[in-house]
């Protein structure tokens, strides 16, 4: 017989017990405690089209470069007011992000509400910001010979479009732009806090 941790099962049990306890305290309990955080007053859930757009945002990995968290720091206030807990009540999977290669988008629906700008920026970011390193998303668009009556046409400046035809936003692009435009911080009222 082996004594103490020279018994393999004692080693397994000690590791599982200590780490299992820590996992509950530092993973499960914070999750359980913070998940029911009520929404910031005035915040509305996404509609069906915006939700579809959010799924595309997640699938294309937009939040690897765009945070959705305005920090209570001077340099972040250009993006909006500091984020509060209730801002994330409808945000699952969470999209706070850990890198900010592009600007924060917490309040982009207020800061850049133009359809024309958003569509063109997704078609070719360098058409609106020459030094941008953002990828282009041409697969969210269709090139047609002629636009139909229901089509959302993208106004592409010379040099950034196809040689022939017009660029038309797909349902996916329309949903994504609807989601981007839905990202608006609601003003804080008295009683809301971090």
């Amino acid at each position: 017989m082996n004594r103490g941790l020279n018994n393999v099962w004692a080693l397994v049990a000690a590791c599982a017990l200590v780490y299992g306890t820590l996992a509950i305290l530092l993973g499960v309990v914070p999750g359980v405690a913070l998940s029911p955080t009520p929404p910031t007053p005035g915040l509305r859930p996404l509609d069906a089209q915006e939700q579809r757009g959010r799924d595309i945002y997640v699938g294309e990995g937009c939040s690897y470069c765009h945070t959705q968290n305005v920090r209570p720091l001077q340099q972040d206030l250009v993006f909006g007011r500091p984020s509060v807990a209730g801002d994330y009540a409808y945000s699952t999977p969470e999209l706070l992000g850990t890198e900010r290669t592009g600007p924060d988008l917490s309040n982009i629906g207020t800061r850049q509400p133009s359809d024309v700008w958003q569509y063109l920026h997704l078609w070719e970011p360098r058409a609106v910001v020459s030094d941008s390193v953002m990828p282009a998303f041409p697969w969210l668009f269709q090139v047609k010979d002629r636009a139909g009556p229901q089509d959302v046409v993208v106004n592409v400046p010379p040099g950034f479009g196809p040689k022939q035809g017009v660029v038309v936003a797909t349902q996916d692009a329309q949903a994504l732009v609807a989601y981007i435009k839905s990202l608006k911080q609601v003003p804080l009222t008295k009683g809301a806090s971090r």
Binding site: V8, L11, V12, C15, A16, Y19, G20, A23, I24, G27, V28, P30, G31, V32, A33, L34, S35, P36, T37, A85, Y88, A89, Y90, S91, T92, P93, E94, L96
Partner: peptide, 30 residues
Amino acid sequence: TVGGFIFTIILATVAIIPSYQNGLGQVAVQ
């Protein structure tokens, strides 16, 4: 190594259960 394997199984289990991961709660778990 035995510790690493056990910790990771526990960790992965905590991370995969979705019921307590909403909004800011999911940020804490993440």
